[in-house]
Design a protein around this nucleic acid. Sequence first.
DNA 1: CTGAAAGCGCTAACAA
DNA 2: TTGTTAGCGCTTTCAG
Lengths: 341, 341
Amino acid sequence: MSKDHRRTTIVDVGRHAGVSSKTVSRVFNGEPHVTEDVKRRVRAAAEALNYHPNMFARGLVQRRSHLIGLVYENPSPSYVVDLQMGVLHRLRDEQYQLVVIPVASVAEREGEVVGLLRSAALDGVVLAPPASDNLRILEDLAAARIQCARIAPTRLVEAAPSNLLDDVTAAREVAAHLIDLGHRDIAIIKGDPTHASAEARLIGYSQAFHAAGLSIRLDRIESGMFTHESGYAAAVRLLGQTDRPTAILAQNDDMAVGALIAAREAGLTVPGDLSIAGFDDSEVSRIAWPAITTVRQPVFEMAVAAADMVIAQLEGGTVEMRREHRHELVIRQSTGPVPKR
Amino acid sequence: MSKDHRRTTIVDVGRHAGVSSKTVSRVFNGEPHVTEDVKRRVRAAAEALNYHPNMFARGLVQRRSHLIGLVYENPSPSYVVDLQMGVLHRLRDEQYQLVVIPVASVAEREGEVVGLLRSAALDGVVLAPPASDNLRILEDLAAARIQCARIAPTRLVEAAPSNLLDDVTAAREVAAHLIDLGHRDIAIIKGDPTHASAEARLIGYSQAFHAAGLSIRLDRIESGMFTHESGYAAAVRLLGQTDRPTAILAQNDDMAVGALIAAREAGLTVPGDLSIAGFDDSEVSRIAWPAITTVRQPVFEMAVAAADMVIAQLEGGTVEMRREHRHELVIRQSTGPVPKR
DNA sequence: CTGAAAGCGCTAACAA
DNA sequence: TTGTTAGCGCTTTCAG
């Protein structure tokens, strides 16, 4: 009755079409040396029998799953969305599917990550920060022969195909923008310290400060985690002080929005009383009011390029080992001249 | 040299541990009747040989990929994020991976969807709207023996495990809220008409209008696509008229935010000159300024429950066939009393 | 241009 | 408690 009647296989299709199973295989793999007539008959038979190739059997011999992973940590939803959309954009109309691999804390479980990828039989992965900077993961990946491409790594750039971004310069530019507006007392909300970009951006800020002859005050640096809430909390701490800064540099847009809300609750107008700048140019920076001054990071484009690099490796084409992406200062309404005393 | 030296298999592990391959298989599958000592030896051997099970071989005999798909259309990023986070939350620490299957237009390619799932060898899928309402897809899924669970379907509720939401009542409640505030001229921005919820919400609105003795004006209904931009465009059309409405009901939060921006550009204050309400309670509704009055749709919880239903089917447990989820009117700052003449 | 045989790495069913 | 045998459905040789 409910006996699991065997799925239809290439053998069935072959019999139905009057050819051998191997010929059916040839047709389905687009191999040459098959008569048009045979092709047609095989296709018709497959259609009639509702045949669908079995990925396991195929994968077992070819060692290919046609699955590509995207490894990321979770902090900023808007960043993750851009990332995914980029990879999916490149994968569209391509014979690959995307498996999402969120990792709670790459730093804490670097040893397990590749095991996970391996057990999912992924052909390749796109590594977003901070996994893209993790040496252990790169090594394990190589050992497991899983192809990869990296998004915004900050070191070991030659180790694997990389999509680079000049975080330091970008950070310097936003900071310089605030300084140009006359700000001298600028606070910083740092991102998750396990992400190398947190350090890189801090360096960029400090270069701008230095160039303007400003000294960096450590008590003006608060730590966040790239999340909305952490940005809010950090801003509350900064604005609670009696001598509050006149501007805040947040290391991403989500934290900048958090700071914006904290400022609003503290009765401060932005940018009248306080200027706020973010980083990323994610959707929230445009939706917020006032819209947030930020640095555009071409996340979508980097994700497209990374997916492209993975596919190129898989298909054996020529692989671009590094690609530089350009940032861009985006001045919106959240930054303005320093308030007069 | 670069000869692809054979991967290590259970046979190798068995030899190394002095047992048969079947015993190794037993250990790796946690089957009973294996001595502790043997287990230990096998584990050690596997470790020493850096053995990793081959998913293809396993899948070939067990017919299981341990892959679960999430099928959705693309309109609202915040909705998709909640959806994914919910499914991933349930899958965490579970032996399943998530494959994301964005479909540009379910209506246009309903015939291809299941073929796609099939070729990715998915064990089960979570269907988000509008796929969750698509009969053809449900049928194909059944034929392909792919388990599924649905998010917010509006019909054929018995056809497959469903997570239900009372869209009509929810819509009626937001509309009633505006009417209570004194609004009599309320415009509507509809969502994508291929999503059944667009119709359901419109009906809810109209019931509230009717109960208040208001007639629904067709020229006050604009069509959007659930996207930010479409909401903006629709609002521009509505506000361009000389006798503009005093309130707007947008069928989701992204479109509400679009309307908010259009209002701002038109020099209108919200809610002073114009009230705006959304739908979903997605993150943007909280971030926007003023924060948007909306109806909370427990997307995350529905996604968790749907993933749970899929897993239950896969593991052969008892499967909940329907689960009702509660909405909640969330009043924020974007709605207020009707402006005085 | 097409087919036959062998085997990918694993587990189900049975035997010992 | 452990091992043996026989495939799962496909592709890779190698012959015809």
